[in-house]
Design a protein around this nucleic acid. Structure first.
Lengths: 129, 129
DNA sequence: TTGTGGTTACGAAATTATTCGTAGGTTTGC
DNA sequence: GCAAACCTACGAATAATTTCGTAACCACAA
């Protein structure tokens, strides 16, 4: 099994921003963070430096405003987090997590249709194999 | 909005055990924890005492082996955790979380059927209102 | 009664995560 | 050139979480 990567809550926020943007400077990331909660600029900077150190990020420091990018795969981390949640809170049942997510969080009609289609794909695939 | 309860990772493990069992002594909880990872008995004890203090648990100390129970609602906490995950990792989209959960974690045919039925219930409900 | 093994209480150390001040380098506009 | 406004580096304080040693208490069998 490959190394388990366990980003902290703050690190996940930053990863998420960089996954969306593709890349960004500390300033840019910081401005997004600030929309949610109060946080000092050097705090964001330090966090990103730590993440660089842990190899969660890479950076281009060829110019004086360093540009950072995520260095871990979004789907992989998401999968790990979801699995952790299923294991520790939903007794290993993906179904329970899905129902909780759909029950408490309103998805619109279009999304529900898409999920249904996705489920049918999965069924078809498993019939074939 | 009511107080946000944010159990730590260890606290969630313990809550999950007590949600399953209904109630349990420190020894019983500890034995389950030990199956997953190495942990000292007094560590478990201390954690549960802290949780009692935070009112995450209640206990019956009428006998010398205190019996603990969860004092927070399972669905409520699960909902909060799922919401947090959707917000910080899935850009607010329950659909994305659901797909990640179903994609990486194999659900069996019966479960998929149940989820589909559940989705149809949701659709029906929303048509009515 | 006494010893053994199991229990709780709790301070405090260890570890991990977060925050920020300060020093010093770079860019920009005038 | 120079000042103002930016930038990075990084030590260190703080906060949050987890771990554990030790003492004291209790049950029970010999």
């Amino acid at each position: 099994m490959s190394e388990q990567i366990k980003p902290t809550a703050s690190e996940l926020e930053i990863l998420n921003i960089l996954w969306s943007k593709g890349e960004g400077t500390v300033r840019e990331v910081h401005q997004v963070l600030e929309q949610n909660r109060e946080v000092g600029y050097t705090t964001t900077l330090k966090l990103m430096q730590i993440m660089l150190d842990k190899q969660l990020l890479t950076r281009d420091d060829s110019t004086s405003r360093h540009v950072y990018s995520a260095n871990v795969n979004q789907e992989k981390i998401q999968g790990q987090m979801v699995k952790g949640m299923i294991d520790t809170m939903f007794n290993g049942s993906a179904k329970q997590l899905v129902m909780q997510a759909l029950g408490s969080h309103k998805a619109d009609k279009k999304e529900i249709e898409e999920i249904k289609q996705y489920l049918e794909q999965i069924e078809k695939r498993s019939r074939k194999s």
